[in-house]
Write a protein that binds this DNA or RNA. Sequence first.
DNA 1: ACCTGAACACCGTTCAAGT
DNA 2: ACCTGAACACCGTTCAAGT
Lengths: 234, 234
Amino acid sequence: MAAHADPRTEARVPLTKTRVLSAAVELADGGGIDALTMRNLAHALGVEAMSLYYHVANKDEVLDGIAEAILGEIHEVVGTIEGPPDGVDWKTAMRQRILSARQVLLRHPWAAGVIETRTAMSLEAAKYFDEVLGLFRAGGFSYDMAHHAMHALGSRALGFTQELFEPDTADAGDEQATAMLEQMADKIPHIVEMLMEVSHDDPDSTLGWCDDQVEFEFGLDLILDGLERLRQTS
Amino acid sequence: MAAHADPRTEARVPLTKTRVLSAAVELADGGGIDALTMRNLAHALGVEAMSLYYHVANKDEVLDGIAEAILGEIHEVVGTIEGPPDGVDWKTAMRQRILSARQVLLRHPWAAGVIETRTAMSLEAAKYFDEVLGLFRAGGFSYDMAHHAMHALGSRALGFTQELFEPDTADAGDEQATAMLEQMADKIPHIVEMLMEVSHDDPDSTLGWCDDQVEFEFGLDLILDGLERLRQTS
DNA sequence: ACCTGAACACCGTTCAAGT
DNA sequence: ACCTGAACACCGTTCAAGT
């Protein structure tokens, strides 16, 4: 048995689709999604690129696979953490679930982008959304209402949002940045004034001061509160 | 002057960055973003691929450029349609603005995806968001609150949402689809029941019955109503 | 100043061939 | 059954050269 676990022989276990996919996830975790090429993936597995095609139809199947893997991870984490959803407090259960999913996605920064590009819903995704739907139902939503609710949440249901632009990380005290801002004041007056206000209130702050987690929760709560209100009046 | 407009001579006008970018937009409109390769783009302009690099640093600059072009189009459309935002009814003004932006993006289906991938905020984007910010301010929001509001809207501010999965277009009457659904009932019970309910209420409906526009407006209104409530109590 | 041909270093993928 | 070498049709991009 010790021999069986010998790393030298272990390195020779034949490829399987699962092994290919785990290696793909590892590769993306390590070097971003651009590092995930068929040739890199093969190299990481100590094999020639063409060997992959024996276990996987094409790269799209790899992407489907790693998306599903992450959704599976979410599913697992959420299943562990969550208490019984038989209580009527759907909102805190939902909140906890979504924030847990978010933690998983933060560990795999590439995953949100990949999940977005998959058009077909995988089984893992279906299972996740089924549970979300169940949570809404347990909270007293009709299927119709719950359906709208899922759309309203959109990718927030999985814990991520479209961050449209990376805020500049320029220091608010930075004179050059401040000067540039003042120069733009005629074209984007409100943004400039907003940033000036921030740097005035808190001179040590950064010009791009957005806290992703805070903003995510703000938006999430806004939606969940809105849904709760609709539920009560329906 | 007629000679100046002659199409034969017109076809010989030298390249400019603007011409390159318009051709790029046209190419993406016609064949999707995958059709936009440097070689295709050059061919559409009747030129060799390498000539492009005289007017444009690299492909990223092309992508930046066409994203900005669409944002400019949005900016233009929104500027025309909108009445003076000096009224206190920020909500309907915002709603109208965002739905107008959405119309532009629906005409350029590839644009949302490209805009997402641009990390730096272009001037056109800044101008658009500045006006959104101005609308919030006119409605009585503090900069801090307006900032949260923009994050809460996310990509909805520009009129699009992450559609995570394309719903199946299977007919609800389709026996095969229904049978498959029943088979899945143990794994995704709520989704199955929801779909069954839909097909029962409306036998002619499609299994993937989501109306994107309706769902977009539902989510948008949920957020805008929530923001209005916060404004009143702050 | 503006455009090009040849070439490089990459992709994903096919196919016939090896063990 | 599993893996590979050579090759194909694509990418974006560089660089020296043409007009």
